[in-house]
């Protein structure tokens, strides 16, 4: 036996792979991302700087803009959080129980995906207006939904629901029922099983569902403007303000709001992504 000398490997940033076509697929990935995502975004990011940093900060910090941004991110986060809870419950029911009409319920979950958002907005506005079916019930209680931030929250909850259900559902299907049996035979209560066994296994999917619902809600326009009432500094969302600025031919002002939204959204999504990666590494379930 001759001891074989280790073959000197040139230091490379890329690990050699047995899968062919890396160059081609990676090239296509970069090209496509550039054309579809990056170049339009760069144009957006460059635009406000043409007027200088000072003017950008001035534009982005006006009370009306700040109020719109706060409203957009606040209601999006609240709607995504509510969807997280109810989406998880719906996914649970769809995966773990059998009942007549299950296929129909399953299909209904996708409706917010398929419905034109303007249609959803008009329907919700009609329903929640003080003379609508639900609005008429809430009005005597002094609860105003339509034309208030609460209405925005309702619309964002509606459009975000399928994201959570559809990300949690397949993961839940993969969770072996044996795990729950094992936990029970070891003496865990239903609540302990849920908290210690099911929830941690579902956490990455819940996080992804939350992130998708949140991202969608931040950018949502069509369904919101019909129910929001669009009162500046009260129920005017940031995407609407961008459209208003564009109507006024104030491209720099529109871009300033857009860049700010982009930065915050990107930061939130990145943070959620890193959390997930960290969680995966911690359980040794990488690769």
């Amino acid at each position: 036996m001759t001891a074989s000398a280790p073959i000197a490997q040139p230091k490379r940033w890329l690990k050699p792979s047995v899968l062919p076509g890396f160059g081609l697929t990676f090239g296509l990935t970069l090209l496509w991302l550039s054309v579809v995502v990056l170049i339009p975004l760069i144009a957006l990011v460059i635009r406000p700087w043409e007027m200088g940093l000072e003017r950008f900060i001035d534009l982005a910090s006006r009370p009306r803009v700040v109020a719109a941004l706060r409203l957009s991110f606040g209601t999006a986060a609240a709607a995504a959080a509510v969807n997280l809870v109810f989406g998880a419950i719906i996914a649970w029911v769809l995966v773990r129980t059998e009942f007549p009409g299950k296929r129909i319920i399953d299909a209904i979950v996708d409706l917010p995906f398929a419905l034109p958002t303007a249609v959803a907005g008009i329907a919700l506005a009609a329903l929640y207006a003080p003379n609508g079916w639900i609005g008429a019930l809430l009005d005597p209680l002094g609860i105003q939904v339509a034309y208030t931030p609460l209405g925005i929250f309702v619309a964002l909850t509606f459009i975000g629901l399928p994201f959570v259900v559809r990300t949690v559902q397949p993961v839940l299907e993969d969770i072996d029922a044996d795990l729950e049996d094992a936990a029970a035979s070891l003496g865990a209560s239903r609540l302990q099983t849920l908290a210690r066994v099911i929830a941690p296994a579902l956490a990455p999917a819940l996080l992804t569902g939350f992130a998708l619902a949140f991202a969608r809600a931040v950018g949502e326009y069509g369904s919101v403007i019909f129910i929001a009432g669009n009162i500046p500094q009260v129920s005017e969302i940031a995407p609407l303000l961008i459209v208003i600025r564009l109507d006024e031919f104030d491209y720099a002002g529109a871009a300033a709001i857009g860049v700010f939204m982009l930065a915050v959204s990107f930061a939130v999504l990145l943070a959620l992504n890193l959390t997930q990666r960290w969680a995966r590494r911690a359980t040794g379930n990488e690769s």
Partner: peptide, 11 residues
């Protein structure tokens, strides 16, 4: 109880 497919808590 010991299961055929282990049923260990992977996290």
């Amino acid at each position: 109880f010991v299961f055929q497919h282990y049923a260990l808590f992977r996290h």
